[in-house]
Structures are given as structure tokens and as C-alpha cells.
Design a protein around this nucleic acid. Structure first.
Lengths: 115, 115
DNA sequence: ACAATACTTAAGTGGATGCCTAACTATCAA
DNA sequence: TTGATAGTTAGGCATCCACTTAAGTATTGT
């Protein structure tokens, strides 16, 4: 789609789709960190890290605030729930379907027995 | 990263990051479908749909098989678990951290009372 | 005041993504 | 056998993504 405005789920999953960003999220799930602290274990330039950070912010996963010359980043706790929710809904729908299928097959088996 | 081979989680989240593909997954969570059935509600050409389908297959979310001239697609039930797992692990880590923080604050409060 | 620190901004590059159209192949149905 | 159906293949185009380097701007420690 050309000229399509990405929704929250798009940005969220997109953010999680990159290994570098997942490492950053993992780090932040152990507590807040500055930009340089986030960058330290990553083999790339600082600007690259900041770009990733911006995607994480845009997705709502991470919140940051600058105090003095240090920008501190932390996880937005509720944010991951959005993705989790969507996945869970699919699983439920799928399981409900299998249940119905199970009932159907059971009924079918009854038919067999009657015959 | 240049020359980087995408891992399973990358492909999985990447697959889920597109609204068209999520619609396809939603459809499939209600039961198997042919390619044209998947394409029907989507405002794009068949080849485009097939490309999306290929990403879903590559991510392991969807399995397909061709019988005669029709390709039938279904969800790979366990696949979503991978993503769900990762998200859950982050949540747990975060919550454990908050617990420790809570303990720390409680202890701190005790200190205060003693003073 | 000066240098080091902690980012920030800007501009550019190569490769992946999300579409498209046109032309093709295989199956099924009459 | 001929035509309709269901996908497939190929090539092209605009945009986005993941980097880079180079050059800035605030803060802070001495």
C-alpha cells in the first residue's frame, strides 16, 4: 500500500522484528539505561542506535527523557500487552475452532456407530 | 547489520508487522482457505497476496499444500507461541525487577521509620 | 575557559518490501 | 479440445530500513 499510515500494531511488531531492537528491549527489561549504555554492547555507530531507539519510542514500547546531557530510556510496561493481546486472540480463535471441529468429529463418530 | 541472516523471531515479528498479513492470519485462524479465498477481501493483485503468503510461510506461521490447482493454507498452530514466549519472558523479567524494586523501597521505608 | 562527554543532525548508500502489470502453466469442466 | 479457473513467474518501480561518516550542540568536570 502506498501512503499508508502505520497503526500501533504495525509499529509494535515492526519494532520487535529487529534483533538489535530486541536486545535493547531485553536490556531495558532489566532496568532503565542511558543511550550510551544501550549502545555499549552493540557493534554499530551511536546514530544507528539512536535510530533504533526512535522506532522503539514510536512504537510506544520505550519512553525516554533527557536530563542534562543524558537521555534515560525505560520500558513502557503496558505496551507489550498490545502485541500479546493480538497473538492471544488468534490462539483463542484457533482453539475455539478446533473445539468445534472436535465436537463435529465426535458427532460424526456417533453417526458411524449408529450405522 | 549488513550480511545478517534473519532468525525465526525476526521473520515472525516481521510477518506480523503488516496489516494485510495480519488479516490473512485472522482469516486462517477461523479455518483453512485457498489462496483466492485469502485474496478475496484484499484490495490488491493476486501476485501481491502470494508474496505476503510466502512471508507467512517463511516465518513458519502458515503451512500450505497444493492439490490439483488449488493451494490450501492453514495456520501452524504452535508457531505463534514463539513470539508469545518472547514477549512473556520480557514481561516476567520486568515484573521481577519491579518486585525487587518494591522490596528495596519497603526496606528503605523501614529505614525511614527507624530514623 | 577548555576539553571531554553525551548525544544530535544531516546526508548518503545498498538492499529489502510492497505493490503493480503482463505473460505463462497446470488443472478441471463442458 | 477448448475455455475458464487457480496459481505462478518475471520484471519493474517507489519507498522504507539499517546502516555509515562528518559535523554539529549542549552539559559538565577541571
Amino acid at each position: 500500500m502506498p501512503n499508508y499510515q502505520a497503526g500501533p500494531l504495525d509499529r509494535m511488531f515492526q519494532a520487535l522484528a529487529d534483533p538489535t531492537r530486541r536486545v535493547m528491549v531485553e536490556r531495558l527489561s532489566r532496568g532503565p539505561a542511558s543511550v550510551s549504555e544501550l549502545a555499549a554492547p552493540l557493534k554499530m555507530s551511536l546514530p544507528a542506535v539512536v535510530q533504533h531507539l526512535q522506532m522503539l519510542e514510536a512504537s510506544g514500547l520505550v519512553r525516554t527523557q533527557k536530563v542534562g546531557r543524558v537521555r534515560t530510556c525505560q520500558l513502557e510496561p503496558g505496551a507489550l500487552q498490545l502485541a500479546e493481546q493480538w497473538i492471544n486472540d488468534r490462539r483463542l480463535q484457533w482453539e475455539r475452532r478446533l473445539d468445534r471441529l472436535g465436537v463435529f468429529l465426535a458427532e460424526d463418530e456417533n453417526q458411524e456407530k449408529k450405522t
